[in-house]
Design a protein around this nucleic acid. Sequence first.
RNA 1: GCGGAUAUGGCGGAAUUGGCAGACGCGCUAGACUUAGGAUCUAGUGUCAUAGACGUGCAGGUUCAACUCCUGUUAUCCGCACCA
Length: 937
Amino acid sequence: MKSYNEIDKKWQDYWEENETFKTDIRDFSKPKYYALDMFPYPSGQGLHVGHPEGYTGTDIIARMKRMQGYNVLHPIGWDAFGLPAEQYAIKTGNHPSTFTDKNIETFKKQLKMLGFSYDWSREVSTADPKYYKWTQWIFKQLYNDGLAKVVDMPVNWCEELGTVLSNDEVIDGKSERGGFPVVRKNMKQWVMKITKYADRLIDNLEDVDWPESTKEIERNWIGRSYGAEVAFKVDGTLEEFVVFTTRCDTLFGATYCVLSPEHKLVDVITTDECREKVLSYKEECSRKSELERTELNKEKTGVFTGSYAINPVNGKKIPIWIADYVLATYGTGAIMAVPAHDERDYLFAKKFGLEIIQVLEEETGTPHSDEIKKNSIVAIVYDEKNDKYLTLNWHDKGGRLFIGGSMEGDETALECAIREIKEETGYIDVSLIEVLPKINHHYYAFNKNKYFNIESTGLLFKLNSNRRDEQSLEEEEVFDIEWVSSDVVMNEIEDELHKKTYQYSIDLGAMCGDGIHINSSFLNGLNKEEANNKMLTWLEENHCGVKRVNYRLRDWIFARQRYWGEPVPVVHMEDGTTAVLDDNELPLVLPEMDDYKAHGGKAPLDNAEEWKNVVIDGKKGVRETSTMPGAAGSSWYFLRYIDPHNDKVFADYELLKHWMPVDLYLGGPEHAVGHLLYARFWNNYLYDKGLSPVKEPFKKLVHQGMILASNGEKMSKSKGNVVNPDEMVKLYGADALRLYEMFMGPLSADKPWNPSGIEGSKKFVDKVYRRFNELEIVDTDTLEFEKVYHQTVKKVTNDYLNMDFNTAISQMMIFMNALNNKTSINRIYAEGFIKLLNPICPHITEEIWNTVLGYNNTIAYEEWPSYDEEKLVENEKEIAVQVNGKVRATINISVDDNEDIIKEKALREDNIIKHIEGKEIIKTIIIKGKIINIVVK
RNA sequence: GCGGAUAUGGCGGAAUUGGCAGACGCGCUAGACUUAGGAUCUAGUGUCAUAGACGUGCAGGUUCAACUCCUGUUAUCCGCACCA
């Protein structure tokens, strides 16, 4: 018997020599299947065990589909531009391409060693000028259509890397690569107007078969919200500013406005008295790094500008502040603040003593047609020392309540509350902590036989001392005064109004829920949605606002001040115009340089004097020296695979039409808001241009999970717990590694590496190889395998389709176990089984196909085995018999047993008799072929 | 804070429409064959106990029957995070 290393080599050489997996791209006679892996960044570390997990998954599908008669496209390539190669080059003085080429060679060797059925003739590399010619060409189209442009905007600047970064490259205020600090900075930058596609990038998600969680991440990242833009005039000037709000129904509650510190109007409207403070606050904000800004988000800061805005709905003058809780980059960079109904505005208003007006109140109880209106209070008195609340226990006349009462005369809520506390409980030494939002409550008073609708103000007091006066109770007021814990309050206070009031008191802040409007003129009595619609109409009719959809997504910052990326095919002319290179000047190739390092915030290409200075039509110009981001080349590579050597167009449209979309796309979930979004954007754009035939490029998306170290930690070089695939292949063979990675658990789950697990997988491969060499392959029937064979074909086929590889493997193990102690097997079963195993273990199955089963051709295009449903029907079956839901016996039944026979059989069992003895059978439930349950009493 | 996911033996994990929880593998125990066994084969292996009881993060509920459905809750992981 040969070693696995020999067998692996033999078949890998065979596939290569025979071009076994080369796709005939123009063969449209068979149905197509496009199975794609996210192409790797060829890092210096080489492949880790996580790579083969996903790659094996797609390889299994690709191999099965070939056997099922599909024309399969299964390509691979390299996402070759990127920072690490450049950092390495700077450190060692080598050219980034030397390093990249070397890594690609390593990766290639490793991928081949694992036996993936890639069509290597379609290999692409994003750093290859033949490839990036077309990346530049697509950029050019985007530029000409106004989707790529230079704008002055706040960007993420990473000093250490000397480059700007896009939002998805900044994690927790640090750069994704290297973890260096990132600050906000206004800079002229290339951006891609991905926001133009925001709606489609959300809406098209309906049409693709992706994990719901990934779709949700993309939706949240794009962050579409519906609202209105409302214009506020600045009092005493001709200036005005626009705010974005999703809650224009609360406009009557707007008590101040806030501009972001970077807002253009700030300098204009700041009064002389406030100028100094405003300037120093602005200065303070600009110094803050992204990290500081997010970390300090609890404590609100801000300053008054000295100016006032006019609330368009009621003409009220409200102060204009600046604060960094308002972001320059979201919405209009300005807000109206409604502290009663927005958590952040509430905190800000509390801190700076700004007015709070409630315009929405929650409704409790059930309305009734004739109600008497009243103004009331609910007073909650809290004793901090003992952690107890003051309650009145009315027993069967209303249960446990806080102190309540109605206002008399022109009494304020506070006066009323203090009076009621004193009258009902005698306590006099209390002080107000907080006035809670008003509640609109409907109730029926039994003693008065009347319906009431009260507007109740909740007030939270703390008890200072136990000083008490006489109570002054009325006759019907019979209750016990009891101090109780919060547990008792929650369990025993059942009155809706009092319950709600208590909830407000423990969670102080803005009222953000729905309710009915008050203090809002023409909106009074309407709920949130009704009021919103009415206000929108009002704003538009009165020309102070418009309906507006806003997005969290920002435009894609597209330039990097780095060397190792695609040059931007644009020249800045001396006369201030911008010229784009002609198609025949593409690719614009990176110049050779001695020094790849950025100096003083300038891009490395700034030093390439000869390269950057050009003359076009007699006019002087300077090339753009920023390069494109890593995600540029990966945004369209799936199209190039279909026609990788075309030098006329990026890919032939007829071919694209046949092969797109990608049927299965597999890769890590971390690309949801980066690569996947950008690729969808570019493809959508190309679709609009008639250059891509499909709206969405990836029909089905699957994520592989992470392979963790055996203790459940992430594998990392620093922890020294990295498992090296080369070593695994050397020790156990490629098939055992592939099998183990598929057997570990569900593909998309994170799972720990177990060193003895792979040994178990090798044992299975050993067993298959050994047993198939021992067994006599016969043409006579070996019927004892019939059922398990058909079961196996069915389960493996279905499980592969669902990518449930772990359970497919367990079924194949069951099949092999059925062969234990047997000396011969029918050829059909033997061949069928080897075909089923082939996608996971291609080497050993080719070897058996060749040396045991005697074929000279590859198994790769043999017909996929089929199963016969009839062979799976069981004539005789064992089912469980339960008494009161507990299994007490099992009986054998045959398919044609009717319910009476089944029941009779069940009642004959000793253990059943024992359990129903002396009891009455209430009913018997028989589920055909599954279970029988006898219910007794 | 918001959004998403997960929770099952010593371990990785199975379980169509609710229908015998623990398939399959690892590990462990015993045995066979062996000079030997870290090869292979056979048998056993959820927990506690004597027949029986208890068991799918926790607490309730629906049902003849719940890992599966409903309500609440905890923990862990991931994503977003002052998004107006």
